[in-house]
């Protein structure tokens, strides 16, 4: 199994997609950092240091919106093989398909953790200098680590697993990317606004609940408690992978 996981990591490393996703993650995080310094002030928005604990958490978890890059990575790990017909070769090396899917899941989760780590690097590189320039407190920021950091790592990891499961189900790379981006950046925000009671069960909101109540697009009071969010998020990760294994991943490869 270790060999298979190493092979999957090598496969990811030797294509361009993970590196592109890493760059997009860094850019989205940079955007998130700057957004955290935009303080609503009556009808105006001013640039300044965070004024509340919640805004400090937003700054530390600035990579929150990039969590979907983790899903795309997990998805590409599966759909890329169907698209480029590498799946045949993969299954000749390891004909036990469950092992292949587990190896892909583990490799994607590891890459999800790498992407998450990169968001904190960006927060440190861009957020800390801005914070000191604007007279904010680095110490308050660091005190939010316990609430934000483990949850965000968990969210990136589990959303990567969701990507693997979703990729197994759709198998078509273009459909998969469009569905993930459309679902996360269009459908979920709309539901957030219209039917928060449904939206809170969706993966983004569950991820926000786990990572210290992040999520700027709606009143965060609607989020699930962190432990329920964790359960919901885990279900989003595991259920599609299991369904995908039993339905599409064990089909004939012709």
């Amino acid at each position: 199994m270790i060999r298979l996981i190493r092979s999957e990591l090598l496969k990811l490393r030797t294509t361009s997609s993970p590196w592109v996703l890493l760059i997009v993650t860094l850019l989205l995080t940079a955007l998130g950092v700057i957004t955290a310094f935009l303080i609503p002030n009556g009808n105006r928005v001013t640039f300044g240091a965070p004024t509340t604990i919640y805004r400090y958490r937003l700054l530390l978890g600035a990579g929150d919106t990039a969590v979907w890059m983790s899903a795309i990575l997990g998805m590409l790990c599966v759909t890329g093989e169907y698209r480029h017909k590498v799946i045949t070769t993969t299954l000749l090396v390891e004909p036990k398909r469950a092992y292949v899917l587990v190896a892909k899941s583990v490799a994607s989760v590891l890459w999800g953790l790498i992407l998450c780590a990169s968001t904190f690097v960006m927060v440190a590189a861009l957020g800390l200098p801005l914070l000191s320039a604007e007279g904010g407190s680095a110490s308050i920021l660091l005190h939010q680590a316990g609430a934000v950091v483990p949850g965000l790592f968990a969210a990136f990891a589990i959303i990567a697993l969701f990507g693997v499961g979703f990729g197994t189900l759709v198998r078509n790379q273009v459909v998969g990317i469009v569905a993930v981006l459309g679902g996360s950046f269009i459908l979920e925000p709309i539901l957030d606004g219209l039917i928060p009671s449904v939206a809170k069960w969706l993966p983004s909101a569950a991820a926000g609940a786990v990572a210290g109540g992040l999520g700027t697009r709606a009143d965060r009071a609607f989020l699930l408690s962190w432990w329920l969010g964790a359960l919901v998020l885990a279900a989003w990760g595991i259920v599609p992978t299991v369904i995908g294994y039993f339905t599409t991943f064990t089909r004939d490869v012709t």
């Binding site: 496969k11 030797t14 294509t15 480029h84 017909k85 590498v86 045949t88 070769t89 000749l92 012709t254």
Partner: peptide, 12 residues
């Protein structure tokens, strides 16, 4: 084994 309809990732 060498099979038809097998391929490679183009950028690898």
């Amino acid at each position: 084994a060498v099979l038809e309809a097998t391929s490679f990732h183009p950028t690898r």
